[in-house]
Design a protein around this nucleic acid. Structure first.
Length: 684
DNA sequence: CTTCCTGCCGTTTTT
DNA sequence: CGGCAGGAAG
């Protein structure tokens, strides 16, 4: 270990524990950190430390995250520490999926895939499974494709192959044996389409490394230091991926908080973080329990909510920050008055807050010129949105955003909805991407299906499915004229042949065109443009979305030809984050689910819908483990706040048309009385 | 191939 | 309530 003669400036503002973690010796290191304790910060500083003091070449370092946003943040902050631009930082920083895809593209041929294999997202996966369910003679109502997809994905996260699944669970009951059958067919279908789903992007690389020790050793030598953020979110496949890559040297620096594990429903196993010491017996473990973010009252509330939890590491978050104000708990009549109350409180706070200066936002009455009474429905927001950056409204389910959006619209409060329909999930975007994917992967049936059906060219689903299965049996490219016995005639044949002609033309143009130019060309000659610009406002908006996609292409992959297109398609498949696009919009109140709030912080947090059955959600009641995940979700929500926390619940929430009688959430009951300022029922 | 009607069902969601 | 699967009819 390097002795530091003079302490570099970037180590000066770390506390004792943080400094110990950052300068820990080589080998496995676990930083078990609480919310707001600067855990990601230690990871960034560790990276800088390895480069500056250990004199490790950045080319040997990988930093892995779960979201692109986190990767971006690490990249830019590490670059700042090292006085470099983030473009020539030299480290590989990205999500597990993007890094693994990068590796996989290199050695895909060993698995029988071309380097340009398609990446199937959840929607592609679902439609593939639906087809299989139909082929097996079931309809959608009998067998839920979503449920099957979930089970398959969980099995893949646990590295259970279709055969493993069949052996272990196949004979369990009728449903599991059906799932086993579908799973097997699904994997075959993926292979025929030369496609991988998100789970495969991790699993297949694990498989490659397990089967080829020489390849593994190459990677281990090339990347000798691995840093993992949010380690509690790793599933078994990602855990193994990491373990294989770090190898015997085990230079792994993992950072995480088991209290913030909220993704076990998608396979994340926070046991990975609890078992760290068993996996790496020589591990150094550092605990960061000091919180720098929140007031002492908020921290006390977080500790109180977690106190009844059974499955957790012992930890007591503490802070030197002032006590601050008590948490405000407000009972409201229904979801509409809840939303109105929240929006009015935000208008009020943003106008009067001592932290956020702004003009009063009451509108004078038009006739009398007097400020209106401070009653319901009388305030209108008049700021420019920037002062709203400190506020967030968090809810358990996306459906709850509706009432809040309506309240914002009514009061003229600008808002930013995080989540909802993501950019790359839009119909028109998927359509154009399907055309592009076909140019790289001529076996991609799901993309052919989409492309050939939009715009309509006389070919229906039935004919297409026939062509696809025929081509896959004959093992020829989908859009090839050598496909025999397709039995098409008349307008169907004409449509098919015109598509082949177009396709061949694009293939010829491909090497000379940039991605943006290619999008233009496809848009034009496929007839997509004509179909979108039919004069309707909706069509125009959709066309503009494609223009937006072009902008992304120009910025991210300015190059020409096949390689650039593969890079672009990988990028848009793995970067489904709409935040980058949303952040171009002017500021506003942020509305999002509790899940998407992880890793963020706000001055003031509103937790709405704190009712039994909604939060904790009723589906978690039967399983203590699931109930605890809700508890952790509550902890995550509370600890997003720097200064103020509001919890609201409605006594008469409308859900699916009927009214649900709401009792206050048990989590509210876990908060000590002296931390709470309870507001009595408001008159309705 | 499209459109219209009926009836069912309802977390969280990144990559 | 509202979105979507799926069947029937155009």
């Amino acid at each position: 270990m390097v002795m530091l003669m003079t302490q570099p400036s970037y180590l000066k503002d770390l506390n004792e524990q943080q400094l110990a973690a950052v300068t820990a010796p080589s080998g496995p290191v676990l930083v078990l950190a609480g919310a707001g304790s600067g855990k990601t910060r230690t990871l960034i500083h560790r990276l800088a430390y390895l480069v500056e003091e250990v004199k490790l070449s950045p080319a040997h370092i990988i930093a892995l995250t779960f979201t692109n946003k986190a990767a971006q943040e690490i990249k830019s902050r590490a670059a700042a520490l090292l006085n470099r631009s983030s473009a020539n930082l030299g480290c590989l920083i990205g999500t597990f999926h993007s890094v693994s895809t990068r590796f996989l593209r290199r050695s895909a041929s060993q698995l029988g895939f071309p380097p340009g294999f398609s990446i199937y997202d959840q929607a592609d996966q679902l439609s593939l499974i639906r087809t299989i369910i139909k082929d097996l003679g079931y309809n959608q109502r009998e067998v839920s494709a979503g449920a099957v997809a979930g089970l398959i994905s969980r099995s893949k996260a646990d590295l259970l192959s279709p055969t493993d699944y069949k052996e272990r669970l196949g004979s369990h009951n009728k449903f599991t044996s059906l799932v086993a059958e579908i799973y097997g067919r699904y994997q075959t279908a993926l292979f025929k389409n030369q496609a991988m789903d998100f789970d495969d992007l991790i699993n297949q690389q694990v498989k490659l490394w397990q089967e080829n020790s020489q390849l593994l050793r190459q990677y281990q030598e090339r990347f000798s230091y691995i840093l993992v953020d949010e380690y509690q979110d790793t599933n078994h496949a990602q855990y193994l991926w990491t373990k294989l890559l770090v190898g015997p040297a085990a230079n792994l620096y993992a950072v995480g908080d088991d209290w913030q594990s909220i993704y076990s429903w998608r396979g994340a196993d926070f046991g990975n973080i609890l078992r760290f010491n068993q996996d790496y017996p020589q591990a150094k473990i550092y605990k960061l329990e000091r919180n720098y973010r929140s007031t002492a009252n908020i921290i006390a509330a977080g500790n109180a909510v977690m106190a009844p939890a059974e499955f957790k590491t012992d930890k007591k978050l503490w802070t030197a920050n002032a006590a601050g104000r008590p948490l405000k708990v407000v009972e409201l009549y229904d979801e509409i008055s809840e939303a109105n109350w929240v929006v009015e409180e935000i208008i009020n706070l943003s106008a009067t807050s001592d932290l956020i200066k702004g003009e009063p936002m009451y509108l004078p009455d038009q006739e009398t010129g007097l400020l209106p009474d401070v009653g319901q429905g009388s305030w209108l927001y008049q700021g420019d949105g920037r002062e709203l950056a400190g506020f967030v409204v968090l809810y358990r389910t996306n459906a709850q955003s509706r009432a809040l959006e309506e309240a914002c619209l009514k009061k003229g409060l600008p808002y930013r909805l995080v989540g909802g329909t993501r950019f790359y999930e839009r119909q028109e975007i998927k359509d154009i991407l399907a055309y592009l994917r076909l140019l790289i992967n001529d076996r991609d049936g799901a993309s052919l299906r989409r492309a050939a059906l939009t715009p309509r060219r006389g070919l229906g689903e039935t004919s297409l499915d026939k062509i696809i299965s025929l081509a896959q049996t004959q093992d020829v490219a989908l859009l090839s004229s050598s496909l025999s016995n397709h039995g098409l005639s008349g307008s169907k044949l004409a449509g098919w042949q015109s598509l082949i002609k177009l396709y061949n033309k694009w293939l010829q143009l491909l090497p000379k065109l940039t991605v943006a130019e290619l999008i233009d060309e496809v848009l034009q000659s496929s007839g997509l443009k004509k179909e979108l610009l039919d004069g309707s406002a909706e069509g125009k908006a959709r066309y503009e979305n494609i223009e937006e996609l072009k902008t992304v292409a120009v910025e991210r992959t300015p190059g020409q030809g096949r390689e650039a297109l593969i890079e672009f398609l990988t990028d848009v498949s793995l970067w489904q984050d709409q935040d980058e696009l949303a952040s171009k919009q002017p500021g506003g109140l942020t509305l999002m689910t509790l899940h998407s709030a992880k890793g963020l912080e706000f001055d003031t947090v509103f937790l709405v819908g704190m009712e039994e059955g909604l939060f904790p959600h009723s589906s978690s009641f039967s399983e203590p483990k699931e109930l605890e995940e809700e508890r952790r979700l509550c902890y995550v929500g509370l600890t997003r706040a720097r200064r103020l926390v509001y919890c609201t619940y409605a006594t008469n929430r409308r859900l699916f048309g009927s009214v649900m009688l709401g009792l206050p959430s048990r989590f509210l009951g876990d908060l000590p009385r002296d931390l709470i300022d309870f507001q009595a029922p408001t008159p309705f």
